[in-house]
């Protein structure tokens, strides 16, 4: 018995060591660095809250903008992913599996390649504008499609959607048919079944999808840099530039810590609201 336990721990150990060495330790270090300072391009070990004060004042706007934008991306991605997974589970019939496979094959289309492709699609000379001009829906190209927060949202949603479908699809598959039919039998319409039976049972899948989309977009800096234009700076851009351009790791770390805390708080709030909203709707 003791032997088996030791063997099990030994088997887990290599993975755990990689996790500690290349995830936990660097993050702890990041957290510690966030209390240090930089003087003449050299790190000074200190215990100051200056970086957090700066994060709260100078970067307040950027953090708020990032949380709002990422929250919107997370929400839109989750709603679309839920609708897609719902379609696959309940309405697509035998096309369900083909649809799921199509969605999943776009999981790894190359992160940078996708951003680049959307850049081509959304430009004022891009295909979307061309198509709209051709059909006569617009007479001038829409210039705010690219280099705007809209472009960031579109690009991030298209990148994150397949990731968000995964946990929701798994959750919907876990719901048996009989309770759904029982609800119908007892007089519930589709919307009521959704609120009373389906959504409460796939809470974890939906919240995982939201958290994933939200975290990834809140920390992204490549998308705003490439398609966001000069006006759209997300906190990731500031973090990256503090590290890379200004060599100021402490303030970059403090920004990263604050962003993580803000996003965690936002996800906690969303999970709380999800449960409250469902309970409010069910009575």
């Amino acid at each position: 018995m003791r032997d088996a336990r030791l063997r099990a721990i030994a088997a887990v150990m290599p993975s755990l060591l990689v996790w500690i060495g290349f995830f936990l330790a660097p993050l702890v270090y990041l957290f510690i660095v966030s209390f240090w300072r930089v003087r003449q391009y050299r790190l000074v070990t200190d215990a100051t809250l200056d970086n957090y004060i700066a994060a709260g004042s100078e970067y307040q706007h950027a953090i708020l903008f990032t949380v709002v934008l990422a929250g919107f991306v997370g929400l839109l991605t989750t709603v679309l992913a839920f609708a897609l997974a719902y379609l696959i589970r309940f309405h697509a019939g035998r096309f369900g599996n083909a649809l799921l496979l199509t969605v999943l094959t776009t999981l790894f289309g190359g992160y940078l390649v996708k951003i680049y492709a959307w850049k081509g699609l959304l430009g004022s000379d891009g295909i979307v504008n061309r198509a709209l001009l051709e059909t006569g829906l617009i007479s001038q190209p829409i210039t705010w499609l690219l280099y705007s927060p809209i472009a960031v949202v579109i690009t991030l949603v298209s990148f994150l959607l397949p990731y968000a479908v995964l946990p929701i699809n798994a959750a919907l598959r876990g719901i048996a048919d009989a309770p759904i039919e029982a609800a119908r039998d007892l007089g519930a319409r589709p919307v009521r079944i959704l609120i009373d039976v389906i959504l409460p049972q796939c809470e974890r899948g939906v919240l995982t999808a939201f958290a994933l989309a939200f975290f990834i977009s809140a920390g992204d800096y490549v998308t705003p840099q490439l398609v966001g234009g000069p006006e759209t700076f997300m906190i990731g851009n500031f973090i990256q530039s503090q590290y890379v351009n200004r060599m100021n790791a402490p303030i970059g770390s403090a920004l990263a810590v604050v962003t993580m805390l803000a996003t965690l708080a936002a996800v906690a709030l969303v999970s709380f609201l999800y449960r409250r909203a469902l309970r409010a709707c069910s009575t």
């Binding site: 048996a176 009989a178 119908r184 007892l186």
Partner: peptide, 28 residues
């Protein structure tokens, strides 16, 4: 089925797993 004066006891019962017994019985 939602409009028929007919109700069903499902194979495997089809109880709502996230509702209490009272909520299950009171649902209809």
């Amino acid at each position: 089925p939602e409009h028929r004066p007919i109700n069903m006891v499902f194979q495997g019962y089809g109880l709502f797993p996230h509702m209490t017994v009272r909520e299950n019985v009171g649902y209809g």
